[in-house]
Design a protein around this nucleic acid. Structure first.
Length: 854
RNA sequence: GCCCGGGUGGUGAAAUUGGCAGACACGCCAGACUUAGGAUCUGGUUCCGCAAGGAGUAAGGGUUCGACUCCCUUCCCGGGCACCA
């Protein structure tokens, strides 16, 4: 080991990084008698831009916790991987022709290098990559289970199509109605899409939130997103027609106040309902609504538009004839796509009724008759229900409707089914092929492995004018890799580039086993069927829905995860990641996990019991870091100037982990000084170790040291790294007054600091002639008696104002403390000429003497 | 509009959850050591005041012996949802 005098992080840090890698110091053991601890980071998308300062924030927290838990005797799993499918890589491929696989490899290598330079000692044996066929084989496998369970279906759904980019975009790739890249206009197009029935799990996803140790705000976000609402479905007869109009309402109590109906422009009954006289007007309105984007609809939300259909509905409770309108303020995708409008008790209906001169009938008393009145109250104008409270009337009216078979209580969710396909190249191919109806029957009749892959009710789609049946490939066909293509650009027909790979696309399919060969080859057997592969790919969310499971058993080619290993590791004990994934990723992953729970792949229905969001780090100007603002802080620069230990500590010292906080490059000086001071505590000017090998630490310093062990241990446990660092600064400032410092004290401080600043502490630890990593030394224990203050300061107040103080033994009796307070000259000044009214004594804290003038 | 979270020195922040407001740092001021210092050390640093003292945690009110902490009203900042019937 070099015997350098100065704290030379640039040589120390790479050396210890190599040491941890060579010795696999932080490898997680699959079989161990130690208790396990699984700390998980949200894995990054390896972009070409490299690491951003936001990445190391959460990763430092998890790395610190990992090292802390290891020192506490846990067998720790702390893995890292790559969420590597995604649009930027694909766009780069379109522009340069470079295969996304190659770009991904380059980017990952750079990310890995940067993460290692920060001292994050992941167990790289467990690295995963969502674009690796050995990984996505199991993503495909999970999809097949969803398919077999009837949780995947195909639907024509409107998606964002960007003509300029020639591609379909996801919602999150649209900003203010323009494409995120290039700001090109986008439009809605109905396309064939795979959809997952996440709504089947709405209740469980809502219910499961209750026991999760998550930030409340995130739970609430998911609650709102799922949007459970209790109400009723009510059938309205339509005058002169057989069809019924079904509406959803949360206010069946206001049924007598329904003065018109509204159906969404996309509602299937629109054309049949419209009377001859209105048909033209309605058709024109529907066309206009179709052209409007959601954004436009929202923008002009204030101005309600709509047209009457000319048809009338009959109110089931009073036989009233009420007009049916078409208006785009009613959404097809919520409830039944139709409403009963009660303008007296609903703001939107009131605005609409006012705009179009429709009747307004008040049925609930309150608000001095000022409408709309949307609260509960006493019923009026509601026949036999008059005088009831509206809450009771809800039940009573519902009972009457149920008796007449024209309504029932229901629950509705805002949550929509999950649009799961993308018209792109760089994603997981669907392990699905399409066959004709006759061939589908042939597969069923063959009753082989392939028939096992079929859902109860077939999934069909209209492809090139023919109805085709979806067949899931058997496990033996996995992984289904992406084909070689000439161009990564989407075709003009809003199809993924996979559609050009005809060798891959068209196949012969064994109806028994599900084996496939390219259609270009000879048909293996006369009974093999003509089939076409699915050309959509999965969204980026797919791979991140279950990656935390694969870390447990990353190389298993037989199973998604070995149940024995899964039983040992269980679910992550802590999940750290940004709040921007509060809804989508964390909801999708929970959904898949619940399905895997139903399939008995996992034992716990919830994947992430404890979740923590690190806050965003802003630029020095207090604004969000962005290239355009030029306020981006590059971790590489900081490391070369101050070292990884200083960067790690400073990131944690900036403020509470969860807080949004601005970066300030100057502030890191304080951490740099702390590290240099620590170095000098151990290493003398001559470069030799200077500690006291035999002496005892004085009592004051001992107390500070034990207080520090206590506080740092508690603060690490609860991720309060900023205050842990402050306490270690206090401790170092104290020890620096003593020279030389007894070795035990130095060792304790090094150990406490090691999780945050692993390099300098390993270096000093080794110079104190320890072999092995400091992380292998057992965590220091504090002695409560030694941490205790010798005497306790008690504050003397008069009328709540500080007037003096005194030192007492712990739990000193009230009388003596109060007597001392009264005897204090500074206190006496404020007691003179006053009447003592009350004496308040809070043991070990305070005495408050309450006085008044008279 | 609705639902959350937050406003504490020049700056980042701390405060055992109702008991000394400003720990720990940055910055700044003064001093020491230095040829020098962007190294290091010592002291100071909420505001007003020479001082005694007073004021002070976005603003106003309340509860309390005592409020950054609890309650009500208002303002500002951040996040989410946004015609969800």
């Amino acid at each position: 080991m070099a015997d350098s005098r100065d704290y030379d992080f640039s040589s120390i840090e790479p050396r210890w990084q190599a040491y941890w890698a060579d010795h696999e110091t932080f490898a997680a053991l699959d079989a161990s008698s130690k208790p396990k601890f699984y700390v998980l980071d949200m894995f990054p998308y390896p972009s070409g831009a490299g690491l951003h300062i936001g990445h190391p924030e959460g990763y430092t927290a998890s790395d610190t916790l990992k090292r802390f838990k290891k020192a506490q005797g846990f067998n720790v799993l702390h893995p890292m991987g790559w969420d590597a499918f995604g649009l930027p890589t694909e766009q780069y491929a379109i522009q340069t022709g470079q295969h996304p696989r190659k770009t991904t490899g380059v980017n990952i290598a750079r990310f890995k290098e940067q993460l290692s330079a920060l001292g994050f000692a992941y167990d790289w044996n467990r690295e995963i990559n969502t674009t690796d066929p050995h990984y996505f084989r199991w993503t495909q496998w999970i999809f097949l289970q969803l398919f077999r369970k009837g949780l995947a279906y195909v639907d024509e759904k409107p998606v964002w199509w960007c003509p300029a980019l020639g591609t379909v975009l996801a919602n999150e790739e649209i900003i203010d109605g323009k494409s995120e890249r290039g700001s090109h206009p986008v439009e809605r197009r109905a396309l064939r899409q795979w959809v997952l029935r996440i709504t089947d799990y709405a209740e469980r996803l809502l219910d499961g939130l209750k026991d999760l140790d998550w930030p409340d705000s995130t739970k609430r976000l998911q609650q709102n997103w799922i949007g459970r609402s209790e109400g009723a479905e009510i059938d309205f007869a339509i005058e002169g027609q057989d069809a019924k109009l079904k509406v959803f309402t949360t206010r069946p109590d206001t049924l007598f106040g329904a003065t018109y109906m509204v159906i969404a422009p996309e509602h299937p009954l629109v054309s049949t309902l419209s009377t001859t006289g209105q048909r033209e007007v309605v058709a024109s309105y529907v066309r206009q609504a179709a052209v409007k984007s959601d954004l436009e609809r929202a923008e002009i939300a204030k101005e309600k538009t709509g047209v009457p259909t000319g048809a009338y509905a009959i109110n089931p409770v009073n036989g009233q004839r009420i007009p049916i309108w078409v208006a785009d303020y009613v959404l097809l995708t919520y409830g039944t796509g139709a409403i009963m409008a009660v303008p007296a008790h609903d703001e939107r209906d009131h605005a609409f009724a006012t705009a179009f001169g429709l009747d307004i009938v008040q049925v609930i008393e309150g608000n001095d008759g000022v409408l709309p009145f949307c609260d509960d109250g006493k019923m009026m104008n509601s026949a036999e229900f008059d005088g009831m409270h509206s809450a009771d009337a809800k039940k009573a009216i519902l009972a009457k409707l149920a008796a007449n078979n024209c309504g029932k209580a229901t629950i509705n969710y805002k949550l929509r089914d999950w649009l799961f396909s993308r018209q792109r190249f760089w994603g997981e191919p669907f392990p699905i092929v399409w066959v004709s109806q006759a061939d589908y029957q042939a597969i069923r009749d063959a009753d082989g492995a392939l028939a096992q892959m079929l859902p109860q009710s077939p999934v069909t789609a209209n492809l090139n004018g023919q109805v085709q049946y979806a067949v899931g490939l058997p496990e033996s066909e996995l992984p289904l890799d992406l084909p070689e293509v000439k161009s990564f650009a989407p075709t003009g027909e809003a199809e993924s580039p996979l559609s050009q790979a005809s060798d891959w696309l068209n196949i012969w399919l064994d109806p028994v086993s599900g084996a496939t060969v390219p259609a270009g080859e000879a048909r293996p057997q006369p009974n093999w069927l003509n089939a076409t592969r699915e050309i959509n790919t999965m969204p980026q969310w797919a791979g991140s829905c279950w990656y935390y499971l694969r870390y447990i058993d990353p190389h298993n080619n037989e199973q998604l995860v070995d149940p024995a290993k899964a039983a040992y590791w269980g679910m992550p004990d802590l999940y750290i990641g940004g709040a921007e994934h509060a809804v989508l990723h964390l909801l999708y992953a929970r959904f898949w996990h619940h399905v895997l729970y139903d399939l008995e792949v996992v034992k716990d229905p919830e994947p992430f019991r404890k979740l923590f969001h690190q806050g965003i780090i802003l630029g020095e100007d207090g604004e969000k870091m962005s290239k355009s603002r030029g306020n981006v802080v590059n971790p590489d620069t900081i490391i070369s100037q101050y070292g990884a230990d200083a960067l790690r500590m400073y990131l944690m010292f900036l403020g509470p982990l969860e807080a949004m906080k601005p970066w300030n490059t100057k502030g890191i000086e304080g951490i740099a000084r702390f590290l240099r001071k620590l170095w000098r505590l151990v290493i003398g000017e001559n470069g030799a170790v200077q500690v006291d090998y035999s002496g005892q630490l004085d009592t004051d310093s001992t107390r500070v040291l034990h207080q520090t062990i206590r506080k740092v241990t508690e603060d690490y446990e609860s991720l309060r790294f900023n205050t842990a660092i402050a306490q270690m600064m206090v401790c170092l400032n104290q020890l620096a007054k003593v020279a030389p410092v007894p070795i035990a004290a130095v060792e304790n401080l090094l150990q406490l600091l090691a999780p945050l600043a692993p390099h300098i502490t390993e270096e000093l630890w080794s110079r104190l002639e320890h072999s092995g990593s400091i992380s292998e030394a057992p965590w220091p224990q504090y002695d409560p008696a030694l941490a205790e203050e010798a005497s306790i300061k008690i504050i003397f107040q008069v009328n709540g104002r500080l007037r003096g103080e005194g030192y007492f033994a712990k739990d000193a009796p009230a009388e003596s403390v109060i007597a001392a307070a009264k005897a204090d000259p500074k206190v006496q000044v404020h007691l003179e000429g006053k009447t003592l009214r009350r004496e308040i004594h809070i043991p070990n804290r305070i005495v408050n003497l309450v006085v008044s003038d008279s």
